[in-house]
Amino acid sequence: MKILYSDIRPLATEDGQETIIDCITEQIKKSDSIDIAVGYISKVSLEELERLVEENKIQHVCLVIGMYYIEGMPENSYHAAMKINEKWKKERIGEIRLVRPLKYHGKIFCFSNHSQCFASVLGSSNLGVIKPDASNLRQYEIDVLSEDAKECSDLKKFVDALEEDRCSANIDDIDPKALTLIHEQNVSLDGIDTVEQMPPKGVKLYFQHQTDISFELPLKVPSFDERFLDDNKHFTKSNINVCYANPRNKRKSRDWYETQMTVAKQITRLPGYPEKNAPFFVVTDDGYWFKAHTTSDGNKQFSAVGDELIMGRWLKGRLAAAGLVAPVNDTQKDTARLGMITKEMLEEYGCNTVVFTKTDQQALDDDDRKLDVWTLSFENKNK
């Protein structure tokens, strides 16, 4: 048995001591098969495991996660796990499973070669130890490495039992409605002067005052395979992906958050739809408050007043917080258009429309004008 350490001051590793991350990485290099059973994971650690599996040409991998089925799972980790699980299943090398009948809080890493478990790591470390992030950067763990044949065999046998259907299920086989997804906070609107955050009670109050005047606004996006088709039919140069249109200034890319909510005439002409250039307040389902209006020919543009990035920060920020897309710093350099919002992303998120509903409430703006208050919802319909 060998003790493994974290390397965090003032308990930095000393000469002759091995870190947990170095040991796990080294054992993966020696393996053709790995089985891991932990309580918790993170999105970045999942992606790091995916990289290690691919880099070391691992032939079999199974990750069992023990706490989320009962406690709920962070939304961004869930979407990352679904994507990686699909990839491993397609490549026929492994899967990601969730323990169902109980809370499993143990942490075991088993490393095998030619069907023989030759090393195991057991201790306090969840999967996040292989790729620390802000949440566990100062979290000290201590584990042990066993290369004893009997101990390794017993631990592998235990993990094999966790992988059986009586204990766990493939994450893709679990009904999303049976799994509580914990939504990550959309921080892309933080610090915007014209946007306020509301307490949950305030949001709930406005949603309780909704009227029957309501409009469902479709989000026009291409499929993943259509993301290079630049005609208006495929919406790569308009609506939520307008940031990929030709930049106004050739030396400066459009901001990734730039968004145009283009609403069809059959909606804008319906009774009760806001008049052109008449401002109103919106309160979003996740607690943001800002002023908006409808503009342009045919009253087709729906946007926040004074900042064309706010709607994008709200919509795309939600998708980024869910782990479905990463914000792009320079859209002109995103030649693969991986930052483009697609039908597949919205399908995985569980919503492809924004619901816009009038309330019976009004509020004063900075000019002491009474403005109507509307609600905006972009909710996962699978919750």
Rank of each mutant, 00 (worst) to 15 (best):
Gln332Ser: 15
Arg337Cys: 10
Cys351Val: 07
Phe302Glu: 01
Tyr288Trp: 11
Asp285Asn: 07
Pro274Trp: 00
His293Val: 01
Gln362Lys: 03
Asp255Gln: 07
Ala292Met: 03
Gly323Asn: 10
Asp307His: 12
Thr295Leu: 10
Val354Cys: 14
Glu348His: 12
Asp330Tyr: 03
Leu309Ile: 01
Gly287Gln: 07
Tyr288Ser: 14
Arg251Ile: 00
Ala336Arg: 12
Leu364Trp: 15
Asp334Ile: 08
Arg254Thr: 10
Arg369Ala: 02
Leu338Met: 05
Pro271Val: 08
Ser253Thr: 08
Val305Cys: 14
Thr357Ile: 15
Gln266Trp: 10
Thr268Tyr: 06
Ser296Phe: 09
Thr359Phe: 06
Arg337Val: 01
Thr331Ala: 00
Asp334Trp: 06
Val283Met: 07
Met345Glu: 06
Ala320Leu: 09
Gln260Arg: 08
Arg313Val: 10
His293Lys: 12
Asp286Arg: 11
Lys316Leu: 14
Gly339Gln: 04
Pro279Lys: 03
Pro327His: 15
Glu347Arg: 09
Asp366Trp: 05
Arg337Tyr: 13
Ile341Asn: 01
Thr259Tyr: 14
Trp314Ser: 11
Trp289Asp: 05
Ile341Leu: 04
Val355Ala: 01
Arg269Cys: 05
Tyr244Ile: 04
Ala320Glu: 15
Phe281Met: 14
Val325Ile: 13
Gln301His: 13
Gln332His: 13
Asn352Gln: 10
Pro274Leu: 02
Thr359Met: 03
Trp256Lys: 10
Pro271Leu: 05
Thr259Asp: 09
Ala304Leu: 11
Asn329Pro: 01
Ala336Tyr: 02
Ile341Asp: 07
Gln266Leu: 15
Thr268Cys: 06
Asp365Leu: 14
Arg269Glu: 12
Thr353Ala: 08
Val354Tyr: 01
Gln361Arg: 09
Leu270Ile: 09
Gly317Leu: 15
Ser296Ala: 06
Lys276Phe: 05
Asn241Cys: 09
Arg251Cys: 04
Asn277Ala: 07
Arg269Gly: 12
Ala292Lys: 04
Gly287Ile: 02
Asn241Val: 10
Gly350Thr: 06
Asp372Leu: 02
Gly323Tyr: 10
Gly287Leu: 12
Leu371His: 04
Gly298Gln: 01
Arg248Ser: 08
His293Arg: 13
Thr335Tyr: 00
Asp365Ile: 11
Asp330Leu: 06
Tyr349Val: 10
Asp334Arg: 00
